Amino acid sequence: MPNNRGDRPVRVTTGTDGPMLIEGPVEVALPDGGVVRSDRFTVALCLCGRSARYPWCDTSHRRRPPRSGRQRNAQ
Rank of each mutant, 00 (worst) to 15 (best):
L45D: 04
V10F: 03
W56M: 06
R5V: 01
Y54D: 09
P9A: 15
V10A: 12
S38G: 08
T42S: 03
G34A: 15
G49C: 08
A74C: 04
G33D: 12
V35E: 11
W56C: 06
A44I: 01
R64A: 05
V35K: 15
V28F: 09
P9E: 14
R8G: 06
I22R: 11
T14L: 12
R50F: 01
A52K: 10
P2M: 11
R11V: 13
D17Y: 03
E23C: 11
V43G: 05
G33C: 10
V36S: 09
Y54R: 12
C48S: 04
S68I: 04
R67K: 13
V10Y: 04
R5M: 09
G24V: 13
N3H: 09
V43F: 02
G34E: 15
R8T: 13
R50Q: 13
L47R: 15
R11D: 06
H61I: 01
S51W: 05
L47F: 00
L45Q: 05
G69V: 10
M1Y: 10
R5K: 14
R62M: 05
P9Q: 14
R11L: 13
V28P: 10
N73H: 07
P2T: 15
G34W: 04
L21P: 03
P65A: 02
C48N: 06
G18I: 01
H61V: 02
D7P: 04
E23V: 13
G24K: 11
